[in-house]
Design a binder for these strands. Structure first.
Length: 443
RNA sequence: GGCUGAGUGGCAGAGUGGUUAUGCAGCGGACUGCAACUCCGUUAACAUCGGUUCGAUUCCGUUCUCAGCCUCCA
């Protein structure tokens, strides 16, 4: 039985699917305007974790993760890099695919692109206007928040309490400061599509309402995203979709809402302005994909992760230790065994830290079910497609040096032996003398 | 100000109404030409103040602190 914390009820709940024969899960994906960083990766890995567990339990699961390929940030990036919008979004989409695969994140079943749904979005807006839930002003179309009484139900925000902390400048085309954009005009050199309100482009929140419903139909089971998306993004999605269908109940859209926590660097939020952004492609030059994955899963998904070198080194140690322990059992196929201890722990609101701890316990005191435990562990915590193999040439070079060192040791020339060991360690090769034999591995 | 979450040993992080994980680091030892690896042993914690209780780190309440959101953001 899967239990999951539902942001809508603010409680850990038993997961009861709308249809156990077909589980539907939608996660908010990337805006492809830059390389993904470690914080983005955490969100994608959390969604991947949940998708993997769902797929382990249920026979049919459709996991959708959208790609935002039209957005002001993309327009800015295109100007900066002097590329077309399409080139920018393609470039960073490809990088996203590559980086996530290296972290063992499986491809979603469906990856809808926002720009493929512009016509649907326009039709959606027309209906919202017709039902008086939206209005046009100066070529902008805005959602009229006051028309949806349950607005803010996810984040528990009340509209009239909003003023005190508000720092946002209210554009004069808005009836109310909380109204949000469904459609906005594009300047001549900005990308745009023809619409009843002139040439323009969709607001950000709209795409998820349109694409989730188009790909999964509503109600679907789970909607996930980063904690920061709760408000306004997800509350806006709920308002749009519910208003569109004339239904006030947010569960008529998605039943469970799942949000992951952030990642802190030295007690600071990672941000471009602080210059402390860690990109995945850089990180993977030093650590293996599975190690980074383990590090990201070593904290419960709802808690903030204090990210540090130390955490990565620790994850490296645990990873190596477990790999060595697993070797004893030969090849084990990655597979989710729902009756294993590891699975049971994960099904309690995705308790990955406890699962990691338990796996360590289990290998130190194996039980007869250990192979299923390992299979389940590998299914969740491994799966990076990173190619760690060396060329034949490199392997030969290392073997030769190792042999030279052994010869030196056998003849008592320890100075020379140690020099060779230093040389190997500079090549990131670590030496172990085990039972008279010399083993080596790449760090 | 509002909403949400959290405060456990040097660090990370589970868990529990009484026997107080685990990993890393530290310390001691075995092994080693020296290391590394491995193994054995070991130090050390439960934010604050009250309450309930025979007994609370664990339950209830107070206080304090921290983080995120309330503005694009994973």
């Amino acid at each position: 039985m899967l239990r999951i914390y539902n942001s809508l009820s603010k409680k850990k709940e038993e997961f009861i699917p709308n249809d156990p024969n077909h589980i539907k899960f939608y996660a908010c994906g990337p805006t492809v305007y830059n390389k993904i960083h470690i914080g983005n990766a955490r969100a994608f890995i959390s969604a991947d974790l949940l998708a993997k567990i769902l797929k382990g339990i249920y026979s049919k699961v459709t996991y959708v993760c959208n790609i935002t390929d039209i957005d002001d940030k993309i327009i800015d990036a295109a100007k900066e890099e002097n590329l077309s919008i399409k080139d920018i979004s393609t470039k960073y989409f490809n990088q996203y695919q590559e980086d996530t695969a290296l972290l063992g994140i499986s491809k979603p079943d469906i990856q809808p692109f926002a720009t493929d749904y512009i016509d649907d979005m326009i039709a959606y807006i027309e209906k919202l206007i017709a039902s008086d839930n939206a209005y046009e002003k100066d070529s902008n179309v805005l959602f009229r928040v006051s028309s949806f009484p349950n607005y803010g139900c996810l984040s528990d925000r009340k509209l009239d309490e909003h003023e005190s902390g508000s720092r946002v400048k209210v554009e004069d085309f808005k009836e109310s400061p909380n109204d949000f954009t469904l459609w906005k005009p594009s300047l001549d050199d900005d990308p745009g599509w023809d619409s009843p309100w002139g040439r323009g482009r969709p607001g950000w929140h709209l795409e998820c309402s349109v694409m989730s419903e188009s790909t999964l139909d509503i109600p679907f089971d789970i909607h996930s995203g980063g904690n920061d998306l709760k408000f306004p993004h997800h509350d806006n999605e709920i308002a749009q979709t519910c208003a569109y269908h004339g239904n006030e109940d947010p569960t008529s859209f998605a039943k469970y809402w799942v949000h992951n926590g952030f990642l802190n660097l030295e007690d600071e939020k990672m941000s471009k302005s602080l210059g402390n952004v860690i990109y995945i492609d850089q990180l993977l030059k030093k650590y293996k994909g599975n190690e980074v994955r383990l590090a990201l899963l070593s904290t419960h998904y709802r808690q903030p992760i204090p990210w540090s070198e130390e955490l990565l080194d620790q994850s490296h140690n645990i990873y190596v230790k477990l790999q060595n322990a697993f070797k004893k059992y030969g090849e084990i196929e990655e597979k989710f065994h729902a009756d294993s201890k590891i699975a049971e722990i994960l099904m309690d609101d995705l308790n990955t830290p406890l699962a990691i701890r338990t796996m360590q316990d289990l290998v130190s005191e194996p039980n007869e079910n250990i192979k299923n435990e390992i299979a389940t562990f590998k299914y969740i915590f491994e799966g990076s497609n990173q190619d760690l193999s060396l060329s034949d040439e490199q392997v030969n070079e290392i073997n030769e040096l190792v042999k030279e060192r052994d010869d030196a040791r056998n003849s008592g020339d320890y100075d020379r032996a140690d020099k060779i060991r230093d040389k190997l360690s500079k090549m990131n090769v670590s030496i172990k003398d085990v039972n008279g034999k010399t083993e080596w591995e790449i760090l």
